[in-house]
Amino acid sequence: MSLTGVIGGILTVGGVLFLLLGTLGLLRFPDVYTRLHAQPKADNIGLGMICLGLGVYSGSLSLTLKLLLVWLLMLVATAVGAGLIARAALRRGIRPWGL
């Protein structure tokens, strides 16, 4: 296996691990705010690593750039989405866990 293949593989598997951890947080944490703390952040890193890994694996520059563009859009969308969920929850009077 070539060097790009190995690096791409490692990045992708690492990304999947981050996604798994994020999902674990989603399942295990007690309320909406702590879940938001765990999942979007882990997902952003995980998706970034997968995109980068796939780009390296493909060995094509244009494809890598496209994948990074996907990642960038997802970053913006996830950030805004998480903020919206948190604000909506606050407005509905859901109190953070432990308060």
Binding site: L73, V76, A77, A79, V80, G83, L84, R87, A88, R91
Partner: peptide
């Protein structure tokens, strides 16, 4: 509207 981020998202994403 619950967040000022949403209109911003609209403006940023529409060209995309």
């Amino acid at each position: 509207l619950v967040s000022p981020a949403l209109p911003m998202l609209g403006r940023v994403l529409f060209p995309a």
